[in-house]
């Protein structure tokens, strides 16, 4: 077991944001977190990285390295540093990155990156820390379909090379379903926890509060 969360509760002032959260993550497991806006997804990631006070237990296997990729909307892009400088802050050698990024990007300012480029850079930064658990907060929310694909093929490539556990927050089951095996549904409480085929329309109704159809594409 890599991570065990027991009776997790997070309060902000008198408002309870998360309550009765119990789940486990195994090593190299790929898990998605679904839930409505304000359902506590980002809060859960912040608790898992010990940024906010919480009640209950969050226990990692000894020596577990966690890397969080924050939502790009929470990033201050006005910082006048180049992509090259950004990576050297984390002591990541640029030669390692040449397979994944075009060379001219290293001289580019962070402020001049597209959302897709910034997201890719944040993910590379996190992966090159060699995490045992990678936390991704809505990595595809602002991206076009091609960039969405790119992000997941990048993750898959690294996963195939050297597996790690992934916890990926998203609004969209169809986007993460090609990547994750298991899904946790979060709306203040844990609404579901199971494999993809166990997620039924009833669970979605409970999660989002209204009927949601699940359409399966025939390929």
């Amino acid at each position: 077991m890599l991570l065990k969360v027991t009776n997790l509760k997070v309060k902000f002032e008198s408002k309870t944001i998360l309550e009765n959260i119990n789940f486990e993550i195994k090593e190299n497991e790929k898990v998605g977190i679904l839930g409505p806006n304000g359902g506590g997804k980002t809060t859960l990631l912040r608790a898992l990285t010990f940024q906010i006070p919480y009640e209950g237990e969050i226990i990692y296997k000894e020596g577990t390295k966690v890397s969080l990729v924050p939502q790009i909307k929470n990033i201050n892009r006005f910082l006048p540093i180049t992509v090259g400088e950004f990576f050297s802050l984390f002591k990541i050698k640029l030669t390692y990155l040449k397979d994944f990024l075009k060379e001219d990007i290293f001289k580019k300012q962070i402020a001049n990156l597209s959302d897709g480029e910034l997201q890719k850079i944040l993910i590379l930064q996190a992966i090159f820390q060699k995490p045992d658990l990678l936390l991704l907060d809505e990595p595809t929310s602002f991206l076009d379909p091609i960039n969405k694909e790119n992000i997941f093929s990048l993750l898959e490539k690294f996963y195939q090379e050297k597996p790690f556990a992934v916890l990926i927050v998203s609004h969209d089951l169809s986007i993460i379903s090609s990547f994750v095996e298991r899904v946790i549904c979060l709306n203040k409480n844990l609404i579901c926890d199971g494999f993809l085929n166990q997620i039924t329309p009833d669970i979605f109704e409970k999660l989002y509060g209204y009927k949601v159809g699940i359409y399966k594409h025939k390929h």
């Binding site: 990631l45 912040r46 990285t49 010990f50 940024q51 966690v66 890397s67 969080l68 924050p70 939502q71 929470n74 990033i75 201050n76 910082l79 540093i81 802050l89 962070i110 944040l122 996190a126 820390q129 907060d137």
Partner: peptide
Amino acid sequence: KKEFILITFSEDLAANYRINK
């Protein structure tokens, strides 16, 4: 320097590096 830059860039990212914001 690294701490100031990271906190300015993203407090979430700073937490990755055990930086006490």
